[in-house]
Each structure stands twice: as structure tokens, then as C-alpha cells.
Design a protein around this nucleic acid. Structure first.
Lengths: 212, 212
DNA sequence: CGAATGTCTAATGTCGACATTTATGTTTGA
DNA sequence: TCAAACATAAATGTCGACATTAGACATTCG
């Protein structure tokens, strides 16, 4: 087990992250430093440090002299975020598609099957988790840290804002079908096809989320 | 003239930015809060705020409990950064290539000619500036703020680290040729070609810089 | 002699108080 | 009545001091 140091700042980041996931902080809400400081029994300094870290990851919007807020994404911004994610991940997957072993393809197949199963059982949390595993494995071969940093940020931001809706977007059968299309394109090794499919997947998902 | 408010933090950001551009801060150097605070006659609080902003833009590396440093990019990181930039900008340009007017293409043509001219006169600063204009105009049609934010960050980071070397990378004639290839692909309107050309341009530039 | 341990210094981490600014709501004047 | 000017409250911006920690150096013990 790796030894991690937990400075106050880190704890604040974790705390806010939880609030966001739990839905206790909603888009538009203000994160008041004084309030958070009181609630956690510390001073405002580490709160401010934490805010900056959350801003980096796009989880908090900062308005000078005014405060920090949970971002409110317009439909266009939602679509743009998903589009960008599609571009980055499409490239990441395309450029590493030859590196997958037979075992890994099998594992990916299984993940899709599991997703369908969980979806049928209406186990929303596991659908999201398994989808995350599928996605993580697909981009795991890329060693472009610059690109991975961006995709991670985007992924986290979109996860926190919309993970609640993901399970309602598609029917169980469609969840399976959509991910199988991606997987098939990767198996084919056709570079252009892979990028096209991944981009389209995110474009369509973004459009759906934006109209909710 | 827009009214801009200059908080201490902003002034610190500008100051450090200048130091970086002027080469008074080199990769690996530590930015000591105490020292900066003394030098600017303010307290450490706004310095810390500024550091966080610089970290966001990738201009400063942060090591907990240790300090803030000017990033040292490994050859691989340089290549990755340029590769990622190629992916993002390739998409941005491809997806908006139909929106350029004849006047704008003419303007782009002229910029390339000017670059060659400045290169022949060994006016390095103007080569870089004109190249920046060319690049800015090419991606100016995109309204994907998410994507533009990333490209701007990457662009700024790479500019600060390597703008000194750009003028030595290619001969004047090659500078012209390379940019004309990009421009021609945009004029052709061939989506796949545009992305391929832009990606290749940045891939080659990254490789060259990495081996310096 | 060398590796583990102890000490010291300089840097970041945190604190509580005060200054400044934003946004709101109230008053004032034509 | 309405708009401009003015208070007011509450938030962030900044300050200087103290606490804690990482890294370098000195020390000890085998």
C-alpha cells in the first residue's frame, strides 16, 4: 500500500469531490470559503489551495472577487466537451489498437456483456463502473501523458456532472450494441474507422445529454 | 480599451511570464515564494495564488511540500505535447475548413510569404509572430471552447519553452513549404487530408525540438 | 570506511485578522 | 414613478507570524 500524505488541502479536495458526487452540490452553487472552513474546522488558506486544484480539473468555476461555483454547462458546452473527448480518446485508441492481446479483447467482450447484464438488472452504479473499466482498458495502452492528462480531466468533469444520467440514456440492448461497435472497430485495426466510431459515440452521447 | 483589473496575483502572473520569456527563468529553476514576495514587495498569499494559475497553464510544476519549478520536459514529453497539439488543432481546422472566405485564404497566403521574407532577413521575432498569426487565423473559426482552451494552454506552454528554437528548425524555404502544405490541404477541403497534414506537421516539429 | 541516524535550515503549509470589492437594497432627488 | 447615488453586508484579496516538513549536512556506530 502506497503511503500518501494527506494535507488539509487534499482532504478538502476529497470532501468537495464527495459533495459533488453525492449531489449535495449542484451546478450554480457557490462554494464559500468561510463556510467550508468552518464546516471542516480549519482556516481558509487550505480551502483556497483546494479550490485552485478543483479549478484545474474543471470541477469548479472561479469568478474573481466573487467566488467559486459549481459549473453550469450550457448544452453547447456539453456537446463541445464530449466532442473533444471523442477526438482525444479516438486518437489514443487508434494509435494503440495493435497492442491489444487476445486476452484483452476477451476481457473487453466480457465487460460489454456485463454492462448489458447490469443494465437489465437496473444496477445503475455497476453499469457506470463497468463502463468505466471498459473505457480505461481501451485507452490504457497510450503512453502520451500529455493527452492522458487532458482526457482524465475531461473524463472526471463529465463523470461528476452527468454520471447520474448515463444509465437512462440508452436501453440495455443499445448499451451493448454501442460498445460493441467501438470494440469491433478496434479489433478491425482500421485507423480511420476507429477514430470515426469513437468520435461519433461521444458526439451522440453529448447530444443526448445536452437535450436532457 | 477594455478595463482590466489588476490584482496582485495577476501582476505576479505577468511578471513570471516575462521572466520565462526573457529566459531569466530556465527549466528546473525553483520559484521561491519568499523570494518573489520580497522582490515584488508583497506577501506570499498572492504569490501562491499566481503559482496555482501558472500551474493550470502548465507553465509551472508543483511538488507538494517542496516548491514550484519551471518544468523540465523530456524528449518524450516534448513529442507528446506536439502530438497532442496536432490532434486537437487538426480537428479544429478540419471541422471548420469550409468557413474560410477567399479573402481569408489570401490573407493566409500573404502570411506565409511574409514568414519566408522575415526568415530570409533573419528577423526571428517576426517569423515567430507571423507564424502565430497564421496559426491563430487557422483555428479562429472553431467555437469549441473546451477544445480551444486546451490548445491555448498547450500553445502557450510550448511557445514559452521553445519559441527561441523555432527559427533555427527550418530553412526559410522550408518554412514556406511546410506552411503551404497545410494551407493547401485546408483549401482542398479534404477532411482526412487536413488532419493528416496538421498532425504530421506537429509530429515532425516535435521530433526536431526533442532532439535539440 | 560506510550506512544508518540525528540535527539543522530553508522552504512550503496553515493560521487569524484586516482590507478591499461585489452585489444588494435603500434612500434621495427630479 | 423611476433612476441615480449612497449605505451595508458578505464575500474574496491580502497580510505577517507561526507550524510543519523535505533535503542537506553532520554525527555516530558497526
Amino acid at each position: 500500500m502506497p503511503i500518501v500524505k494527506k494535507t488539509y488541502k487534499d482532504q478538502v479536495v476529497d470532501y468537495v469531490y464527495q459533495l459533488l458526487l453525492a449531489g449535495e452540490l449542484n451546478p450554480g452553487d457557490q462554494l464559500k470559503e468561510t463556510l467550508l472552513a468552518e464546516k471542516m474546522g480549519i482556516s481558509r488558506a487550505p480551502i483556497r489551495e483546494a479550490m485552485k486544484e478543483l479549478i484545474i480539473n474543471g470541477l469548479v468555476d472561479y469568478r474573481p472577487q466573487v467566488g467559486n461555483f459549481v459549473p453550469v454547462l450550457s448544452p453547447k458546452q456539453i456537446i463541445d466537451s464530449y466532442t473533444t473527448r471523442g477526438v482525444l480518446e479516438g486518437y489514443a485508441i487508434m494509435s494503440t489498437c495493435k497492442q491489444f492481446s487476445a486476452e484483452e479483447f476477451e476481457k473487453l467482450d466480457n465487460l460489454v456483456v456485463q454492462m448489458e447484464r447490469y443494465a437489465n438488472k437496473k444496477n445503475h452504479k455497476m453499469v457506470v463502473d463497468t463502463g468505466g473499466d471498459f473505457h480505461d482498458l481501451l485507452i490504457s495502452k497510450s503512453d502520451n501523458v500529455e493527452l492522458l492528462e487532458y482526457t482524465d480531466r475531461l473524463s472526471l468533469k463529465l463523470h461528476i456532472q452527468f454520471f447520474k444520467h448515463w444509465s437512462t440514456l440508452y436501453s440495455p440492448a443499445e448499451i451493448g450494441r454501442r460498445h460493441r461497435v467501438i470494440l469491433d472497430s478496434v479489433k478491425s485495426g482500421d485507423s480511420d474507422l476507429i477514430e470515426r466510431v469513437v468520435r461519433q459515440h461521444y458526439a451522440e452521447t453529448g447530444k443526448k445529454i445536452a437535450t436532457l
